[in-house]
Design a protein around this nucleic acid. Structure first.
Lengths: 372, 372
DNA sequence: ATGAAAGCGCTAACAC
DNA sequence: GTGTTAGCGCTTTCAT
C-alpha cells in the first residue's frame, strides 16, 4: 500500500545508500549485534571437556559417557551453538549439502521434489542446493564447475536429466553420488527411484475400458523422458489384453506441454470419426485436450472421457476435474535423499540400489461411461 | 521400460549393496577416480607464483601484473581448477550462498523466483539454497538454526514470508542480509523489490471498463500477502475514477487458491443479477471463476469476462486463455539477488534500498465487450 | 606487485 | 572414555 504512496508509481528506482555487510559489522555500532559467533571451543570450555568430545556428541559418535554427553548438550543449548557447516565440510567428509538438478519440467513437479527432499534432509541437518540446468546450452559447463566447487554429498536428478549422459558422466568423473528419479531404460547404470509407469498406464487404460470405451486415443509424452515409453507400453498392453485394436491414427506424439496436448487433441478430434476417450501421458497435455473439448462444446465426460497422469495441481484446476494417476513425487524425492544421506553407492557388477514406489489411480469427473 | 522387466512390478523394493562414498574412495580401485582434487597450491606451483597471487587473480583483486594474471589463468584452465567453496567461506567473508525462503505459494511462482535468482547468481559463482518454511509450525525453529549453520550471504524472501515478523527478526538477529519480494506496507523496515500492484490492478480494471463493463466483480487475495490490499485498492480506485459504484456484494474474499476462486465465483454468479466481468486477484482464483463459468455454461467472454493476475503458466492452460497481468517474478528475484551479492545493507534512518519493476497487461481471450 | 605466515571452525588420526 | 595435534583449502593480515 505504501509503495505507491511513497511516490514510486510506475518508475523503476533504486535507493541510494548501499553499505556492505562487512562494513556494518566492523562499525559494530549498528543494531543489536551482540552475537559474536560462538564456536566449538566455547562449548568445550562451558562444559569442561575438549573440543573433540563436543564433536563426538555433535556427531552422535559412540564412547561418550551419558553424563558427559548431557553436560555438552546442555552447553550447546545454553549457548545456542550451531556448528559451522563450512568448517565441517572442509575438515570432514560430509558437506551437508544435497543438490537437486532440474531442467524445466512442470513447476509443480519441481516444487514437489524440493518439498519431498527437504522433508528428509532437514532432520539430518542437510540442506538443498537447487540447480536448474539448461539442456539447450552447454551442460558440461554448467555441471562440472559446480560439482567441483560445491562438493555436495549427493545429487538428485529429475527427468529428463536422469538420463542425460553428460550429466551422469560429470557426476561420476567428479565422484559425486547421485540418485535418478524416474530414469529411462538404463536402470543398471546407477541408483534410482521410480514408480511403475507401465502398470499405472495399464490400470488407467483398464479403467477406461471398464467404462465401456473401446476406441481410445493416446498421447505419448516427451521422448526424452524414460517414463513416456513405459506409459505408452502400459496403454498398448491393456488394449491388447482386452482384445482391442490399437489404431495408429489414435496415437499422437506429444511433448508433455499443454500446447502439444492441445494440438494432438485437435488432430484426434478433428474428424467425424473420433475416439470416445483420450488418455494423455501427463496432466498438462490432458488439460490441452480438455481445452479443445471445451472449445468444440463437447461434453466431458458424457461425449468424451479424458484421463491424465501425474496429479499435478492443475488436475484440480479445471472443470470437470481430471481423472489421473497420482505419482508419489515428493516420496520419490524423499527416498532419493535418504539413499544419498545414508551414503549409498553401488558396486560394479551388482544391480544399483533402487526403490519402486506405489502410485494411485485418482478417479475424478473427467472420465465416465462411454456414450451409446 | 526395464523397471518392470526386471520384475519389480508393483512391489516396493530396496537393493542390497550399500557402500559409503568414503570407502569407495579409500579402496580407490573403483572407476576412473583419477581426479585427485587440485588445490590452489597446484595452481600456484604450475604458474610459478604464490598462492596469494592466485587468490588475487581468482578474486579479481587489483595489483597483479597482466602478465602474471595471464599465467595464473592459464594454469587454472590447464588444471581445470575450481576453488573449494567451503574453504573460501570458512576463511573469508563470503559464503557464495544465497537463500530462497518460501512458504507454499504457487509452484509456478516458486520456480520463477528460483530461475530468476539463479540467472544472476551463477555468473558470480553463487549458489542457491532453497528452504521451504512451514508457517503452521514453529518458524523460529526452522529459521534460526539454519541461519547459524549456513551463514549465507543473503536471503530472498517471498510472500507471505516477506512480512513474517519472526523471520525478519531472526534474520536481523543473525546478521544475515535479506531482500523481500513484494512485501506489505512495512516498506521502511528493510530492502525490497516489488512491482506496482495497485497501478496494475488499476489498469486492468480500466481495461474492463473500456470494454463497456460497469458491473464488475472482484475477488480479493490472501490477506497475509501485502499485494492483496494493493490490488484491491487499484480496483477500487479505477471504479471510483470512472464514477462506477463499488457494490459490496460484488467483492469477495479469496485465498489465492483455485478453490477459493471457485467458491467466490459461485457466490458472485449464483443469483440472477450477476456482474458482466470478474477480476480475480490472481490466476489461480481466475481459473476457479472460469471453472464455474464453464459449469454454468456461460460463454466466456461473450457473457462473462474474466481477468486474472500474475501470468502463471496456468493462464495459458485454459480455453479461452486468461487475460492477466504479467508480474516480473524472475526479474524481481534477479534484482533481489543482485542487491544481496553487491552487499547491500541499509543504514538506520535512511529509506531501505528498493526496486520497483515494470508489469505488463496481457490481454488474451477471456475478456471481451460487455454484453448488450 | 608479490609473498610468508596465520588462522577460519571444524573432523580425523592417534595418543592416553 | 577422552584429549592432543594436525590439517582441510582457502582469505587475510602484514611484510617486502
Amino acid at each position: 500500500m505504501l509503495a505507491e504512496g511513497e511516490g514510486h508509481k510506475g518508475i523503476a528506482m533504486t535507493a541510494l545508500s548501499w553499505l556492505s555487510t562487512r562494513q556494518t559489522e566492523r562499525i559494530g555500532a549498528v543494531g543489536t549485534e551482540l552475537s559474536a559467533k560462538i564456536t566449538i571451543h566455547d562449548v568445550a570450555r562451558e562444559s569442561g571437556v575438549s573440543i573433540k568430545t563436543v564433536s563426538r556428541v555433535l556427531n552422535r559418535e559412540p564412547n561418550v559417557k551419558a553424563d558427559t554427553r548431557d553436560r555438552v548438550q546442555a552447553a550447546v543449548a545454553a549457548l545456542n551453538y550451531r556448528p559451522n557447516i563450512s568448517a565441517r565440510s572442509l575438515a570432514g567428509a560430509k558437506a551437508y549439502l544435497i543438490g537437486v538438478f532440474f531442467d524445466n519440467p512442470s513447476p509443480g513437479y519441481v516444487t514437489d521434489v524440493q518439498l519431498g527432499a527437504i522433508s528428509r534432509c532437514r532432520q539430518e541437518g542437510y540442506h538443498l542446493i537447487v540447480e536448474p540446468i539448461d539442456s539447450t546450452s552447454d551442460v558440461e559447463d554448467q555441471v562440472a564447475p559446480m560439482l567441483a566447487t560445491l562438493r555436495m554429498d549427493g545429487v538428485i536428478l529429475t527427468p529428463p536429466l536422469s538420463d542425460h549422459p553428460v550429466v551422469l558422466d560429470a557426476l561420476e568423473r567428479e565422484g559425486v553420488a547421485y540418485v535418478r528419479i524416474a530414469p529411462g531404460d538404463d536402470v543398471e547404470r546407477a541408483p534410482w527411484v521410480s514408480m511403475d509407469d507401465r502398470e499405472a498406464a495399464y490400470e488407467m487404460t483398464n479403467h477406461l475400458i471398464g467404462l465401456g470405451h473401446r476406441d481410445i486415443g493416446f498421447i505419448i509424452g516427451h521422448p526424452d523422458h524414460g517414463a513416456s515409453a513405459r506409459r505408452h507400453q502400459g496403454f498398448v498392453d491393456a488394449m491388447r489384453d482386452a482384445d482391442l485394436p490399437v489404431r495408429q491414427d489414435r496415437v499422437e506424439q506429444g511433448w508433455f506441454s499443454f500446447r502439444s496436448g492441445f494440438e494432438a487433441a485437435e488432430r484426434l478430434l478433428g474428424g467425424a470419426d473420433r475416439p470416445t476417450a483420450i488418455f494423455a501421458s501427463n496432466d498438462d497435455m490432458a488439460l490441452g485436450v480438455m481445452a479443445v473439448a471445451n472449445r468444440m462444446r463437447l461434453d466431458v465426460p458424457a461425449q468424451l472421457s479424458i484421463a491424465g497422469f501425474d496429479d499435478t495441481p492443475g488436475a484440480r484446476i479445471t472443470w470437470p476435474q481430471l481423472t489421473t494417476v497420482r505419482q508419489p513425487i515428493a516420496a520419490m524425492a524423499a527416498a532419493a535423499a535418504d539413499m544419498l544421506m545414508s551414503g549409498v553407492q553401488h558396486e560394479e557388477g551388482d544391480p544399483p540400489p533402487s526403490r519402486l514406489l506405489d502410485f494411485e489411480l485418482v478417479v475424478r469427473e473427467s472420465t465416465g461411461k462411454a456414450p451409446g
